[in-house]
Design a binder for these strands. Structure first.
Length: 500
RNA sequence: CGGGGCGUGGCUCAGCUUGGUAGAGCGCACGGUUCGGGUCCGUGAAGUCGGUGGUUCAAAUCCACUCGCCCCGACCA
């Protein structure tokens, strides 16, 4: 039986999440810096995989990377009214330069004439530079992406899901027409959806945010929403139509073909290290981390099994040879030949760390030119024991590649099934309240009268919020009805859930 | 930022009420044994008891302040 290193999901979901992160070595609280985290090598490797795949997708859609300053003049933030209102409370501010030592204490030296804000997002400073770079319609569209860290002074933090500082990418684009900008918003939201589905094995719904949930300064915010294993929703990415709001605030203009001066139409879009938390919460189990192969820093761990020294030499040798071959087949492989641990210990350890497939090589396997493999999540036999599979050493790389592809697909299908079996349509306020009573959550499609007041009232009563107005085909077909709370007319159902 | 809980070797925690200078299990190191799902035995290393200040002959223990983490709420990716 497994040791109780990891709290079970049913006992305490939040504790389970933290235990999984700790036992897999993904991250830990920074402890000396409030609300911030240390992303440990295994966790950072997952982020790097996300980055490289996303970066490829951004380049394929015509974007270029650039980098803007971490510090933003305070005055910039004030130029867009909605924007400043949304971010004012969570800004960290730099007010001084230099330190002086006196009586063994350090004190602040020079007060800055104009303080800087540590970027909570970069719309403003990028707006400033876009104004310098854009002069003609020939300069458009301007398609920029930035990989960066940002800081938001959060009052309550959770590793990866919400931290004071986090890593992300922010796309910023400028276009000649609103229609082009809107296309861009949708294009990148589709990039995010495809990435979530294909790489994270995470099914997401696309939709539009309500006024209450819209990005501060945007005309429209779109999002991808995923369901976690406790039925709560997690916003996994956003893509904003900024209209001409920042164009006007920062005087970003261009001359059109007729020689007329116009403000540009802008977009911004981003995903963050929160995605690492999403992947953990979506796939992991009570034994620890479960990773989709396409994000796994290690695809395959090989555990040689021996009794005698001769057997050790033979199995370790075979393990290394096979690892080399698998590496040539493009797989990331780790040979665990530590002699201070018994095989069972190694099995549990690599399972906690989320390695998708384990390969065992023992004397009997050498004999038969085969290996035993075990998937991170495997079917069980009649006795409840996980089933291992026997594969020939010949062509193992190809066979394992197939296993990994299957596992990737399996995780997606499983997450999709989970979401579908926890998605319901509700038409009575009483039933709506019952669904969200206690800790639980589901995805609930219900009618809403379209007002922010009603949305807030529903949240106050149930803790459920409108996650999005799903795009056509991504929720129930639009049919008129009456608001679940007020009974007023409603054109369509929207998606409700508790959220992270 | 409000309410609650908690900070003692890497992890989980005992000790605190009734002050006397720190313990257990797991992990770790070494030796042996074992090795196809968490062997067993022995030896050993490791802790400014979150921090600062106070009370006291004496503080992990009492008091004040402070930092951090976790949970609930409000705010947010």
């Amino acid at each position: 039986m497994a040791e109780a290193r990891i709290t079970t999901r049913s006992k305490d979901y939040a504790q389970w999440y933290q235990d999984v992160l700790r036992e897999a070595g993904l991250a830990e609280p920074a402890e000396v810096v409030r609300g911030c985290m240390v992303i440990k090598p295994h966790g950072y490797a997952i982020w790097e995989k996300m980055q490289s795949d996303l970066d490829r997708r951004f380049k394929a859609t015509g974007h270029q990377n650039a980098y803007f300053p971490l510090l933003i003049p305070l005055s910039f933030l004030a130029k867009e009214a909605q924007h400043v209102e949304g971010f004012a409370m969570e800004c960290a501010v730099v007010t001084h330069s230099g330190l002086k030592a006196a009586d063994g204490k350090l004190t602040l030296k020079n007060e800055l004439e104009e303080p800087y804000v540590v970027r909570p997002t970069s719309e403003t400073i990028i707006g400033h530079f876009f104004a310098k770079w854009i002069d003609s319609y020939r300069d458009l569209p301007l398609l920029i992406n930035q990989w960066a860290n940002v800081m938001r002074w959060e009052l309550r933090t959770r590793l990866f899901l919400r931290t004071g500082e986090f890593l992300w990418q922010e796309g910023h684009t400028a276009h000649a027409t609103h229609a082009e900008a809107q296309e861009e918003v949708r294009r990148m939201l589709d990039v995010y959806r495809d990435f979530a589905h294909e790489v994270m094995a995470l099914p997401v719904l696309q939709g539009v945010k309500t006024d209450n949930e819209r990005f501060a300064g945007a005309v429209e915010t779109t999002c991808i929403e995923a369901m976690m294993q406790d039925g709560k929703a997690l916003q996994a990415g956003t893509s904003h139509d900024l209209g001409q709001n920042f164009g006007k605030a920062f005087n970003v203009t261009f001359q059109n073909e007729k020689g007329e001066r116009e403000h540009v139409w802008q977009t911004s879009w981003g995903v963050s290290t929160r995605l690492v938390g999403a992947v953990v919460m979506a796939h992991s189990d009570d034994d620890g981390l479960v990773l989709p192969p396409r994000l796994a820093p290690i695809h395959v761990v090989i555990v040689p099994i021996w009794k005698s020294d001769a057997e050790k030499a033979a199995t370790v040798d075979a393990a290394r040879r096979i690892a080399k071959e698998l590496g040539d087949d493009g797989l990331s492989v780790k040979v665990d030949d530590r002699d201070n641990l018994r095989p069972g210990d190694k099995y549990y350890e690599w399972e906690r760390k989320g390695v998708p497939v384990r390969v065992e090589i023992g004397p009997r396997d050498l004999e038969s030119r085969s290996v035993m493999i075990k998937r991170r999540i495997a079917p069980v036999d009649a006795n409840g024991k996980a089933i291992k599979e026997k594969l020939a050493m010949e062509g193992l790389g190809v066979a394992l590649g197939k296993v990994l592809d299957e596992f990737q697909r399996f995780l997606f299908e499983r997450a999709l099934q989970f979401r579908e079996s926890n998605t319901i349509t509700v038409d009575s306020w009483k039933e709506f309240c019952e669904v969200f009573a206690g800790e639980g959550s589901k995805f609930v499609y219900a009618h809403w009268d379209g007002t922010g007041e009603t949305e807030k009232a529903i949240k106050e009563a149930t803790k459920a919020t409108i996650r999005c107005l799903p795009y056509p085909g991504q929720g129930p077909a639009a049919e008129p009805g009456v608001c679940i709370k007020t009974g007023k007319p409603s054109a369509r159902r929207v998606l409700f859930a508790k959220n992270y």
